[in-house]
């Protein structure tokens, strides 16, 4: 089986300058189970597994943090704006209610 991608950071537009405000979206492959649904075959309740919190950190400075509840859709997307202030790294971390932590980073290279 091909390995599936767990998460993805997208920045729009692709080429950006220093000081520009860009759109950042963070996509996660996550079941987001509420703990209320039942498996159709086994008739057992699927245990809750949803994202608790998401953090956007840019060059060591926290830009945005979110508290997430189970009402978000399967494979959620978080989109917001961000101001580019020089070269650096954007690190996005999410935490699960089961204690799972996942980190994804992207280099920021402004041009011109």
């Amino acid at each position: 089986m091909a390995q599936t991608r767990k998460s993805l950071i997208k920045i729009k537009p692709k080429r950006y300058k220093d000081g520009e405000i860009v759109k950042v979206s963070f996509m996660v492959m996550h079941p987001m189970a509420t703990g209320m649904g039942k498996d159709k075959k086994t008739k057992k309740i699927i245990p809750a597994k949803y994202i608790n919190s998401v953090k956007f950190v840019y060059n060591g400075k926290e830009i945005t943090h979110m508290t997430v509840w189970e009402s978000l859709s399967v494979n959620p997307v978080f989109t917001m704006y961000m101001k580019i202030t020089g070269k650096g790294k954007l690190v996005v971390t999410y935490t699960d209610n089961t204690g799972e932590v996942h980190e994804k980073s992207k280099k920021i290279k402004p041009r011109g």
Binding site: I63, T64, L72, T79, M80, Y81
Partner: peptide
């Protein structure tokens, strides 16, 4: 929770 570093106050997601 946003900060001034965001530049624009916008948020978008998908809900159930």
């Amino acid at each position: 929770f946003l900060t001034p570093a965001n530049g624009k106050a916008m948020f978008s997601t998908r809900i159930k």
